[in-house]
Write a protein that binds this DNA or RNA. Structure first.
Lengths: 361, 361
DNA sequence: TCAAGCTCCGTAAACGTTTACGACAATAAG
DNA sequence: CTTATTGTCGTAAACGTTTACGGAGCTTGA
C-alpha cells in the first residue's frame, strides 16, 4: 500500500484545503465537496460529519479554485464612478441601497463588492477589464448616462446586469429608477392646487438621464394645469448642498415678478443648501416661498418641516438585486420577474414647507 | 501529425483564453504568458507580437486561473461597516480616500474593491470569510474600534493589512490616522491665545478610538495653558449634521456662565449643523461664539468662513495604500517604509469663525 | 573541435475546486 | 437466482493560468 494514501491522519497537516478535510475524515475529496455543496448523492450522516469537521477546522472553499472550475465567482459588483455621482446623492443614498442589495445577496451566499472607477480612468475600459477578467457574475451599474456605452457592451457580452437609472440607450436591458415622473406630477399638482403658477425645478449639469425625464413630466403636468412652460424656471447646479445654496441665492436675485414662488427638488442633498440660500437672501421657505424636496436624514431637522417625497432606498436596493438575479440563470427560478424596468414607488410626506402662493401673484 | 496541433489557425475559435492567443500566434502558451507578464526570457520581437495580438483580440487573463496558480489575487480590499461610520464622515471623506488608494493600486495593476459589511452580519465573521476564501491580497480596515478583534485576527493569520484609525489592540500592526492630537493642541492653543477658557469639544458616541485620543490631548493642552478640565464641556452626539445641530442647541441652552465660548469639531460633517444649531438658538459663530472645525466642501460656503484644519484625504489614501504595500512581500521593495504607524500632517486654514472670547468672561 | 555559456522557447506540472462517470454494495423486482 | 434499481462514494478530468525545467540553437573561448 502506497504510503500516505489517506492514512488515519498519520501525516495530517501537510495537505491543505479540501484535501486536508477529506484526509481527516478518511473519505474522498469528491464526497466532501458534494456534502458541502448540498448535492443529493451523499449519505446524510456523512454530510453531517463533513459539515461539523469543516466548521471545526474553519474550512472555507478557496475562491479561485471554485471560480475556475465553476466558471462563476459568486460575486456581484456594484460599479460606481468615483467623482460625479457620489458627491451628488451622498453616502446615505448609496449606503442604504447597498444594504438592500446585500440583504438579497446574502440569501444566496453571494458577495457584494463595490467597484470604484476612479476619476482618472475611463469607465468603459474599467468595465471591460472587470468583465473580461471574469470578476463578477452580475453587475449593477449606476449613474447611467443619457447615452451609455456600458449598456451596449454588457448586453452584447451577455453579462447579467441591471442599470440604476434609465437611459436612451436601450438594449432591452433591465433597469430600476427613482420615480421622477411621480415627483414632477405630484409636485406640480400639489403646488398648482395651492395657487402657484411659477414653479421652479432643478436639473443636473451632467448627462444623466434623470433631468430629461423630470423636465418632461414637469412640462406635461404644467400643461394639464394650463400653466405656460418657462425655461428660466429650470435651475442647473451641482447636486449637492452648495448647488442648493446657489439656487437659493439665484432665485432671490431675480426680480419678484420673474421669480418662481415654489421649487421642486429631486435631490436629497440639496435641500439644506437651498433652505440656507433662501434664508441668506431674505426669502423664507414655507412662508413666502414653497419648497418640496426629497426625504433624507439631513432634511428631518429642517424648519419648517419639509414637504417631501419619501422613497425607501433599502427597498430600491432589494428590488435592484432581485431584478438582477431574475436575469441570472442560476437564480431566475427564485425571481420570476422577467426583465424588470420599473420605478420605485413614491410616498408623499406632508410638511410645512409648501405654503400657498402669495396672494398678489 | 495529429490534427489541430497548433495548426495555422485552421480551427481557430474553438479554444479560449491564452490557448487561443497562442494558437493564433503559433507559439506556445508558456511563451505567451511570459511575454504578457514581462518575464525576461522572451525575445523582444515575440513579446511585441504577443502584446499586439492580445490587444487586438481583447485578451485579458482570467482572474480565477491566475489567482489559483499564483496564490494571490491582485485585489486589495477596503472594508467598511455599512451603518455607523459611513453616515459619520460622509461620502466625501471616503471617496477622497478611495481615490488616493486607487492611485497607488493602479501603479501596480492592483484592483481596489470595497467590501461592505452590512449592518446585519458580524464584522468578525465577515472578515474571516473574506480572508479564508482568499479574496484579497491585502486589506484596509476602517472604523477601528478601541478594542478591535480584527487586528488580532489578521495579524495572527498573516494577512497584510493596515488600519485606518488607531486602536488599543496592538499587534505591532501598521496604522494610519488623522492627527487628532494635532487638532486638539492647535485648537486649544489658538483659542486659549484668544482668551477662551471654556472650550467645548465633540466626542463620538461609539467605541472608535478617536474620541479618547482627542480628549486626552485636549486635556494635556488645557493643562499647558493652566485651564481646568470640565467634563461638561465634552459633547457627545452622532457624527453628522444633525448631531452638530443638537450640540449647537445644547450649548445655547446652557446658562451663559457654564456655557463654552468656543468649540472644536473634529468631524467634517457636523460643522454645518453646528452653525445652524447656534444660529437657531441665537448664538452667532464668529461673533459671540468661536468655532474651529475640519475642512470640507460643505464648510466652504459657510459664513463666517470657518477656521479649520485641512487634511488631504487623497494623500491619506495614498499613504494608506503605500504603507499597506510596504508590508506585502511583492511590493515592499518599492516602499521601504517599514511598519508605518503615523498620523496625517495637518494644516491650519485661518477663517473668521474663531473670534476672541467675550471680554466679560 | 569541444565545452561552456547564452538566448529563447516548448513541455508539463502544479494551484484547489467541482462534477461526469463508473464502481460497488445493498435492496427490490422478476 | 438473476437482473434492475437505488444509494453512496471514489476516481480522474477538467477549469485557465504561471513557472520550473530542460532542450535546441547559437555564440564564445580555449
Amino acid at each position: 500500500m502506497p504510503e500516505g494514501a489517506r492514512g488515519e491522519g498519520r501525516n495530517v497537516g501537510v495537505m491543505k484545503g479540501i484535501r486536508r478535510l477529506a484526509q481527516e475524515l478518511d473519505i474522498s475529496i469528491g464526497t466532501v465537496s458534494r456534502a458541502l455543496n448540498g448535492k443529493p448523492d451523499v449519505n446524510e450522516q456523512t454530510r453531517q460529519r463533513v459539515l461539523e469537521a469543516a466548521a471545526a477546522m474553519g474550512y472555507v472553499p478557496n475562491q479561485a479554485g471554485r471560480a475556475l472550475r465553476k466558471g462563476s465567482t459568486g460575486v456581484i459588483g456594484f460599479m460606481m464612478q468615483s467623482g460625479s455621482q457620489i458627491t451628488g446623492e451622498g453616502d446615505v443614498f448609496f449606503m442604504s441601497v447597498f444594504d438592500g442589495v446585500q440583504t438579497v445577496c446574502a440569501r444566496h451566499q453571494l458577495d457584494l463588492v463595490v467597484l470604484l472607477c476612479s476619476s482618472e480612468d475611463d469607465p468603459d475600459a474599467y468595465l471591460q477589464r472587470v468583465v473580461d477578467r471574469g470578476f463578477v457574475d452580475g453587475l449593477i451599474i449606476s449613474a447611467t448616462k443619457r447615452h451609455d456605452h456600458r449598456i451596449d457592451f454588457l448586453s452584447q457580452r451577455g453579462v447579467p446586469f441591471i442599470a440604476l437609472g434609465r437611459s436612451l440607450t436601450d438594449a432591452g436591458h433591465p433597469w430600476f429608477d427613482l420615480d421622477f415622473e411621480g415627483m414632477a406630477e405630484l409636485g406640480v399638482d400639489r403646488l398648482a392646487a395651492k395657487g402657484h403658477r411659477r414653479i421652479g425645478i432643478f436639473a443636473p449639469m451632467d448627462d444623466t438621464n434623470l433631468g430629461y425625464i423630470f423636465i418632461e413630466h414637469y412640462r406635461l403636468a404644467l400643461e394639464r394645469h394650463g400653466i405656460a412652460f418657462d425655461p428660466d424656471l429650470i435651475f442647473r447646479a451641482h447636486p449637492n448642498d452648495r448647488g442648493g445654496h446657489q439656487i437659493g441665492e439665484n432665485i432671490a436675485a431675480m426680480p419678484p415678478g420673474k421669480r418662481p414662488t415654489a421649487f421642486i427638488l429631486t435631490n436629497e442633498m440639496m435641500t439644506v443648501g437651498l433652505y440656507r440660500g433662501l434664508y441668506d437672501s431674505g426669502l423664507h421657505p414655507g412662508k413666502d416661498f414653497a419648497v418640496m424636496g426629497r426625504d433624507s436624514p439631513q432634511a428631518h431637522y429642517l424648519t419648517p418641516k419639509l414637504t417631501c417625497f419619501h422613497l425607501s432606498l433599502r427597498n430600491l436596493g432589494i428590488a435592484l438585486a432581485e431584478s438582477l438575479l431574475a436575469t441570472m440563470p442560476d437564480f431566475a427560478a427564485d425571481y420570476p420577474l422577467g426583465v424588470v424596468r420599473k420605478v420605485l414607488p413614491l410616498e408623499l410626506i406632508e410638511g410645512d414647507s409648501d405654503c400657498p402662493a402669495p396672494s398678489g401673484n
